[in-house]
Amino acid sequence: METFEEYLNAMGDPEHKEKLTEMLVWVKEHYPNLNTRIAWNQPMFTNEGTYIIGFSHSKGHISLAPEVKPIKEFKEEIKALGLSHTNNIIRIKWTDPTPFSLIDTLIKYNLKDKAGYTKFWR
C-alpha cells in the first residue's frame, strides 16, 4: 500500500480517504499477486503488465475503472446495485455501501479475459 500513500494523503476529506483506503486494501488482501502503481494520477492494479482495475476520487464519488468491456458485460449487475456508470467508469457515491462483490467480479473477469494479454489496455 506504500504505492498509494501519497495519493491517499492528498485527499482532503478523511472519511473519503478511509473509504478509498478500505477498497484498495481489500483488493490487495484478496489479490496479493496484483501489482500496484499510480498512473494517470490514479491508483491501479495490474497483472503481468496489463491493466486490471483502477480507482480515483472526486467530490461526489469514487470512480471504479475496470475498462469498457467488463462494464458492458456487467451493466445489469451495476444497475441492480443502484450505481451509475459511463462507458469507462462506475460511480460509487461516498454514501453508497462498498460493492466488494462487484469489485471481485470485475477483477476476476479481467484476470481471466486478459490472461496472456501483452498490452496495457484492451
Rank of each mutant, 00 (worst) to 15 (best):
P14E: 15
T98G: 07
I90K: 03
Y31W: 12
N87E: 15
I38G: 12
V27Q: 06
T98F: 00
Y109D: 05
T95H: 09
N87V: 04
Y109W: 11
S56Q: 08
G12D: 12
P14I: 15
M1N: 13
F4A: 05
T98D: 08
I52P: 00
I78F: 04
P43N: 14
H16P: 14
L102M: 09
W121P: 03
N110A: 13
W94N: 09
L81F: 13
K72W: 01
A39W: 10
H30G: 10
P14M: 13
E5N: 07
T86Q: 01
E67A: 03
I71S: 03
T36K: 03
I78C: 01
T36N: 00
S84F: 06
K69A: 04
I103S: 00
I53P: 04
D113C: 01
T3H: 10
T46Y: 07
K112L: 14
P99W: 08
I107M: 02
G12W: 07
S63I: 00
E67C: 00
K59Q: 04
K112I: 09
N41C: 02
I71M: 12
F4L: 03
M11V: 15
P14N: 15
G60I: 04
Q42I: 04
V68Q: 00
T21R: 14
G116S: 04
N33F: 11
L24P: 04
F4M: 02
R91Y: 07
K79M: 09
G60C: 03
Q42W: 06
T86L: 03
I62Y: 06
G82M: 01
T36V: 05
M23D: 08
L24N: 02
N41K: 06
K119P: 00
P97H: 15
S101W: 14
T86N: 10
L34S: 12
V68L: 01
K69E: 11
W40P: 00
T118L: 09
I52Y: 05
T46V: 13
I92S: 01
K75T: 03
N9E: 11
I89W: 00
K119Y: 09
M11F: 14
N88C: 00
E29H: 00
H61F: 13
I89C: 06
K108V: 08
N88G: 07
E48Q: 14
T3W: 01
K79W: 00
I90M: 12
M1F: 14
K59G: 05
H61I: 05
R122L: 06
N9A: 15
W94L: 13
S63Y: 02
L34P: 09
K28R: 13
A115S: 12
F100Q: 08
E48K: 15
T105Q: 11
K17Y: 03
I52N: 03
H85L: 13
F74M: 03
G60F: 07
L102Y: 04
I78Q: 08
L111R: 11
R37M: 05
K93S: 07
F55A: 02
M23W: 00
T3E: 14
P32M: 04
N9S: 08
D13F: 06
L64S: 05
T118Y: 00
Y31K: 10
T86P: 15
S56M: 10
V25F: 02
L106R: 02
R91H: 15
N88L: 10
E76V: 14
T105I: 08
P66W: 08
N35P: 10
M23A: 05
E5C: 06
E18S: 04
L111A: 10
N47A: 10
S84E: 15
K112F: 09
